[in-house]
Structure formats: structure tokens, C-alpha cells
Write a protein that binds this DNA or RNA. Sequence first.
DNA 1: TTTACATGCAACCAATTGGTTGCCTAACAT
DNA 2: ATGTTAGGCAACCAATTGGTTGCATGTAAA
Lengths: 108, 108
Amino acid sequence: MDEVFKALADASRRALLDSLHARNGQSLSELCAGLQLTRQAVAKHLAVLEQANLVAVLWRGREKLHFLNPVPIHEIAERWLGKYERHRLRLLAQLKQRLEAAEGGTEE
Amino acid sequence: MDEVFKALADASRRALLDSLHARNGQSLSELCAGLQLTRQAVAKHLAVLEQANLVAVLWRGREKLHFLNPVPIHEIAERWLGKYERHRLRLLAQLKQRLEAAEGGTEE
DNA sequence: TTTACATGCAACCAATTGGTTGCCTAACAT
DNA sequence: ATGTTAGGCAACCAATTGGTTGCATGTAAA
């Protein structure tokens, strides 16, 4: 669990997760495109994500395909949010979403 | 949002959140007990948590009381769980299971 | 077989980070 | 007024981390 948090702490790694979300099962070289990083750097990041069980890999020939695993992320919330709190916060988030949709603001 | 991930990346800081989750509104000195760290180290960690809006502060006299703010944590879950839908999550879990089975299943 | 492609491994470097020590300020208590 | 308690600020150090370059390995294509 410790490794999940460390894996998520880096913006490049979160970008990799985003990329995999957009298109799952990409190879290392494919993931390199658009990230202006060395292949080796990306490979290191992917290794961290694998270690944290956030990414699963499948070898096909000489290609290493990467797949997302969102399960550990879900487990994070379980730690500090009580059951009722979770429900309450979900309602708040939905309200916030609707308000932002009405204003057109998209923010990270 | 970036600061939330970095704040959560450290085990001591997560322990502080755990402590606040167990008993909310503790002062700095109270939070120091049990963490075998210097007061200054704990103060630094709390500053990071404040910066990330994971902890809210209330001054009472010369004491600084700390409160856990669960909203950013919830937003993390909302983000990734919203993006990566649940049914794909199950497919991936199954895929990973099959991969590990085919690989010889060396468990850690 | 030869060539090109996809990835792994290792050494190395700079920047960040977690932690310490030392000193300073502010609010109580006596 | 004086001492004590709660906390802040700054300099410094060691360990970690993100990134690079260079070379090695395995797989597919010509």
C-alpha cells in the first residue's frame, strides 16, 4: 500500500495512468510519445507503477503491453473515509459537479 | 491537487492522518507523542498536509489544533473511479489473475 | 544471416526530501 | 517579573528520487 502512494506522487506517472485510461494496453514506446522523456525514464516510471500494482503487463512478442488497475486507488479512500462520510461526500461532489457544469469551469 | 498526492506519499504523514482520524483536533505536541520524531519534523509534515488542504488548523491560545479534511481524499477516489469504470476494473482483475496463473503464480 | 526494432540493466548526476540541531517568539502560570 | 510551555524559523546533512547516457539482450523482418 505504501508503494501505491509513492507511485501516485509523481505527475509523470499520473500522466501515464491518464494515457492508459485514454487507450489501454499501450506498449512502452507508445507511452513514450507525447511525454518528452527518455524511454528509460518512462520505463522506470512504469516499473514503479507495476510494483504498486497500478499497472499490469502482458508480453506480446517483443512488445510489453500495459494495462491499468484502478483497484488500489479505490482502497485509498477506504482508509480515511467513514461509510457515512463517504456517502455525504459523494452527494457533495455530485452537487459540485453540477454547479461547475452550469458555470462551464473545468479545473484540476 | 498535485500537493495532495505528494502529501500522501510519506508514511509519517499518513500516520498523522490516521492519528487525526482516530481523534480529531489534536495539537502539535499531542501528535508528536508516539511518532518518535522531533517536534520540528512533525511540524514540517503538518505544514505539508495543511498546504495540501488535508488538514485544517484552529488556534486556541498558544495551541494549534489540527483537524482532518477528508474532501481531497474523496476527490482522488472520485477522479480515478469516475475515469476507470468498474466493469473494466473486474476484467483487469481477471486478466491479472490469468497472467499470474500462466506465469507460475509466485506470490509475494 | 543480417539488420532493425523493443526493451532491460547499470552507472552516474542533480534536485528534492526527511530529518536533525539551534535559536527565537508568543502565551500561559506562579 | 520569571520561568515554563507551545510553537515557528533557518541552516544543515544524508538519503531518496527523477532523469540522463551507454551498452546489452531478445525478437521480428529483410
